[in-house]
Amino acid sequence: MSKTDFPLSIDSRPVYGVFEMRAGKHHLMIADAEGAEALLDLATAAPADLWAKTHIIYIPKTTGKKYLGKLQALSPDQFYAGPSYEAAKQRIADTFSKAHMGLQVYLAGTEGLMGQAMYAATSAGIPHTAIQTEHRGSTARRMQCVHCKGITEDVTHDPFICSHCGLNLFVRDHYSRRMAAFQGVCIDAEDPGNVPKSVGLFK
Protein backbone atom coordinates (compact mmCIF):
# COMPACT_ATOMS: atom_id res chain seq x y z
CA MET A 1 0.00 0.00 0.00
CA SER A 2 1.26 3.40 -0.98
CA LYS A 3 2.34 5.84 1.74
CA THR A 4 0.65 8.62 -0.22
CA ASP A 5 -3.10 8.29 -0.52
CA PHE A 6 -3.96 8.56 -4.24
CA PRO A 7 -7.59 8.45 -5.38
CA LEU A 8 -8.69 5.30 -7.18
CA SER A 9 -7.88 5.68 -10.88
CA ILE A 10 -7.64 3.99 -14.25
CA ASP A 11 -5.37 1.09 -15.19
CA SER A 12 -2.64 3.09 -16.91
CA ARG A 13 -2.01 5.23 -13.83
CA PRO A 14 0.97 3.87 -11.89
CA VAL A 15 0.52 2.63 -8.35
CA TYR A 16 3.33 2.80 -5.83
CA GLY A 17 4.27 0.50 -3.00
CA VAL A 18 6.47 0.38 0.05
CA PHE A 19 10.06 -0.83 -0.25
CA GLU A 20 10.91 -4.32 0.80
CA MET A 21 14.34 -5.88 0.92
CA ARG A 22 15.08 -8.02 -2.13
CA ALA A 23 17.80 -10.58 -2.84
CA GLY A 24 20.60 -9.30 -5.02
CA LYS A 25 24.31 -8.61 -5.16
CA HIS A 26 23.86 -4.98 -6.21
CA HIS A 27 21.26 -2.38 -5.31
CA LEU A 28 20.62 0.95 -7.00
CA MET A 29 18.49 3.53 -5.20
CA ILE A 30 17.38 6.73 -6.91
CA ALA A 31 15.43 9.28 -4.90
CA ASP A 32 14.50 12.93 -4.83
CA ALA A 33 13.47 15.27 -1.97
CA GLU A 34 11.33 13.46 0.66
CA GLY A 35 12.07 10.20 -1.17
CA ALA A 36 15.07 10.05 1.16
CA GLU A 37 12.68 9.03 3.94
CA ALA A 38 11.77 5.86 2.06
CA LEU A 39 15.45 4.85 2.01
CA LEU A 40 15.86 5.70 5.67
CA ASP A 41 12.76 3.66 6.52
CA LEU A 42 14.14 0.73 4.57
CA ALA A 43 17.35 1.06 6.58
CA THR A 44 15.51 0.34 9.81
CA ALA A 45 14.46 -3.08 8.50
CA ALA A 46 17.25 -4.02 6.09
CA PRO A 47 20.28 -6.10 7.05
CA ALA A 48 23.35 -3.96 7.73
CA ASP A 49 25.32 -5.40 4.81
CA LEU A 50 22.80 -4.00 2.31
CA TRP A 51 24.47 -0.60 2.17
CA ALA A 52 27.88 -1.96 1.22
CA LYS A 53 26.22 -3.25 -1.98
CA THR A 54 24.25 -0.07 -2.64
CA HIS A 55 24.63 2.92 -4.93
CA ILE A 56 22.48 5.90 -3.91
CA ILE A 57 21.68 8.68 -6.36
CA TYR A 58 19.89 11.50 -4.61
CA ILE A 59 18.44 14.81 -5.81
CA PRO A 60 17.50 16.92 -2.76
CA LYS A 61 15.50 19.55 -4.69
CA THR A 62 13.90 21.93 -2.16
CA THR A 63 14.88 19.83 0.86
CA GLY A 64 18.45 21.13 0.60
CA LYS A 65 20.73 19.55 3.18
CA LYS A 66 17.92 18.10 5.30
CA TYR A 67 18.52 14.41 4.51
CA LEU A 68 22.07 14.45 3.18
CA GLY A 69 23.80 13.62 6.45
CA LYS A 70 21.46 10.77 7.32
CA LEU A 71 21.79 9.21 3.89
CA GLN A 72 25.57 9.41 3.99
CA ALA A 73 25.53 7.91 7.45
CA LEU A 74 24.17 4.70 5.88
CA SER A 75 27.67 4.38 4.36
CA PRO A 76 26.54 3.24 0.93
CA ASP A 77 29.13 1.80 -1.40
CA GLN A 78 28.58 4.79 -3.71
CA PHE A 79 26.80 8.04 -2.94
CA TYR A 80 25.90 10.90 -5.25
CA ALA A 81 23.88 13.99 -4.53
CA GLY A 82 23.15 16.28 -7.46
CA PRO A 83 21.14 19.34 -8.38
CA SER A 84 18.64 17.82 -10.84
CA TYR A 85 17.58 14.66 -12.64
CA GLU A 86 19.00 16.16 -15.85
CA ALA A 87 22.39 16.47 -14.18
CA ALA A 88 22.30 12.89 -12.88
CA LYS A 89 21.08 11.39 -16.14
CA GLN A 90 24.46 10.43 -17.58
CA ARG A 91 25.52 8.84 -14.33
CA ILE A 92 22.32 6.81 -14.20
CA ALA A 93 22.71 5.67 -17.81
CA ASP A 94 26.31 4.69 -17.14
CA THR A 95 25.35 2.71 -14.05
CA PHE A 96 22.77 0.69 -15.98
CA SER A 97 25.11 0.07 -18.90
CA LYS A 98 27.68 -1.52 -16.61
CA ALA A 99 25.22 -3.47 -14.46
CA HIS A 100 24.47 -7.19 -14.39
CA MET A 101 21.28 -9.18 -14.04
CA GLY A 102 20.16 -9.33 -10.45
CA LEU A 103 20.57 -5.61 -9.89
CA GLN A 104 17.76 -4.39 -7.61
CA VAL A 105 16.32 -0.97 -8.35
CA TYR A 106 14.50 1.21 -5.80
CA LEU A 107 12.91 4.52 -6.80
CA ALA A 108 11.52 6.97 -4.27
CA GLY A 109 10.11 10.48 -4.20
CA THR A 110 8.04 12.34 -6.79
CA GLU A 111 6.27 10.75 -9.72
CA GLY A 112 8.40 12.68 -12.20
CA LEU A 113 11.64 11.37 -10.74
CA MET A 114 10.41 7.80 -10.41
CA GLY A 115 8.95 7.84 -13.90
CA GLN A 116 12.11 9.07 -15.57
CA ALA A 117 14.38 6.69 -13.68
CA MET A 118 11.94 3.87 -14.41
CA TYR A 119 12.25 4.61 -18.11
CA ALA A 120 16.04 4.48 -17.88
CA ALA A 121 15.85 1.14 -16.04
CA THR A 122 13.37 -0.47 -18.41
CA SER A 123 15.36 0.69 -21.43
CA ALA A 124 18.34 -1.09 -19.92
CA GLY A 125 16.31 -4.30 -19.78
CA ILE A 126 14.73 -4.45 -16.32
CA PRO A 127 11.00 -5.23 -16.47
CA HIS A 128 8.99 -2.40 -14.92
CA THR A 129 7.19 -4.81 -12.62
CA ALA A 130 10.51 -5.79 -11.05
CA ILE A 131 11.33 -2.22 -10.04
CA GLN A 132 10.27 -1.06 -6.58
CA THR A 133 8.75 2.38 -6.14
CA GLU A 134 7.67 4.36 -3.12
CA HIS A 135 5.97 7.73 -3.46
CA ARG A 136 6.97 10.48 -1.03
CA GLY A 137 6.59 14.21 -1.10
CA SER A 138 4.99 16.33 -3.80
CA THR A 139 2.11 15.00 -5.91
CA ALA A 140 2.73 17.56 -8.64
CA ARG A 141 2.58 15.94 -12.06
CA ARG A 142 4.88 15.73 -15.02
CA MET A 143 2.63 16.40 -18.01
CA GLN A 144 3.04 15.83 -21.72
CA CYS A 145 1.12 18.11 -24.04
CA VAL A 146 -0.43 15.73 -26.60
CA HIS A 147 -0.45 18.56 -29.17
CA CYS A 148 3.09 19.94 -29.17
CA LYS A 149 4.67 17.00 -27.23
CA GLY A 150 6.41 19.36 -24.81
CA ILE A 151 6.76 18.31 -21.18
CA THR A 152 5.65 20.62 -18.37
CA GLU A 153 7.13 19.63 -15.00
CA ASP A 154 5.58 19.99 -11.55
CA VAL A 155 2.03 20.77 -12.62
CA THR A 156 -0.17 21.50 -9.61
CA HIS A 157 -3.26 22.98 -11.27
CA ASP A 158 -5.96 21.72 -13.63
CA PRO A 159 -6.35 23.07 -16.25
CA PHE A 160 -2.91 24.51 -16.83
CA ILE A 161 -1.09 26.26 -19.63
CA CYS A 162 1.39 24.23 -21.67
CA SER A 163 4.79 25.76 -20.99
CA HIS A 164 5.76 25.18 -24.64
CA CYS A 165 2.81 25.91 -26.96
CA GLY A 166 0.57 27.86 -24.59
CA LEU A 167 -2.62 25.80 -25.13
CA ASN A 168 -4.97 25.37 -22.15
CA LEU A 169 -4.67 21.72 -21.14
CA PHE A 170 -6.68 19.54 -18.81
CA VAL A 171 -4.90 16.95 -16.73
CA ARG A 172 -5.74 13.32 -17.54
CA ASP A 173 -4.98 10.25 -15.44
CA HIS A 174 -3.83 8.45 -18.60
CA TYR A 175 -0.12 7.83 -18.06
CA SER A 176 2.69 6.73 -20.36
CA ARG A 177 5.73 4.97 -18.90
CA ARG A 178 7.68 5.78 -22.03
CA MET A 179 7.02 9.51 -21.60
CA ALA A 180 7.16 9.23 -17.81
CA ALA A 181 4.24 11.65 -17.93
CA PHE A 182 0.49 12.10 -17.72
CA GLN A 183 -1.39 13.36 -20.74
CA GLY A 184 -2.52 16.97 -21.16
CA VAL A 185 -5.29 17.67 -23.71
CA CYS A 186 -6.69 20.98 -24.94
CA ILE A 187 -9.72 21.85 -22.80
CA ASP A 188 -11.25 24.53 -25.00
CA ALA A 189 -10.80 22.85 -28.40
CA GLU A 190 -14.52 22.82 -29.20
CA ASP A 191 -15.18 26.26 -27.80
CA PRO A 192 -11.93 28.27 -27.94
CA GLY A 193 -11.51 30.63 -25.05
CA ASN A 194 -14.04 28.90 -22.79
CA VAL A 195 -11.61 27.74 -20.10
CA PRO A 196 -12.87 26.71 -16.67
CA LYS A 197 -11.18 28.18 -13.64
CA SER A 198 -7.93 26.46 -12.78
CA VAL A 199 -8.06 24.45 -9.54
CA GLY A 200 -5.10 23.40 -7.40
CA LEU A 201 -5.34 19.59 -7.34
CA PHE A 202 -1.79 18.51 -6.61
CA LYS A 203 0.66 19.72 -4.04
Binding site: D11, S12, V146, D173, H174, M179
Partner: peptide
Protein backbone atom coordinates in the same frame (compact mmCIF):
# COMPACT_ATOMS: atom_id res chain seq x y z
CA UNK B 1 -6.06 8.30 -29.18
CA UNK B 2 -2.36 8.93 -29.47
CA UNK B 3 0.03 6.27 -30.72
CA UNK B 4 2.99 8.32 -29.57
CA UNK B 5 1.61 8.35 -26.04
CA UNK B 6 0.41 4.74 -26.02
CA UNK B 7 3.43 2.99 -27.53
CA UNK B 8 4.78 0.45 -25.04
CA UNK B 9 1.54 0.05 -23.07
CA UNK B 10 -0.14 -3.27 -22.36
CA UNK B 11 -3.72 -4.31 -23.15
CA UNK B 12 -5.18 -2.97 -19.89
CA UNK B 13 -3.17 0.23 -19.93
CA UNK B 14 -4.08 1.38 -23.43
CA UNK B 15 -7.74 0.50 -22.76
CA UNK B 16 -7.71 2.34 -19.43
CA UNK B 17 -9.73 5.38 -20.62
CA UNK B 18 -12.66 3.23 -21.87
CA UNK B 19 -15.68 3.43 -19.51
CA UNK B 20 -17.65 0.42 -18.24
CA UNK B 21 -15.97 -2.29 -20.33
CA UNK B 22 -13.43 -3.12 -17.66
Amino acid sequence: WSLDFNVGMNFFEWHAPVPKAN
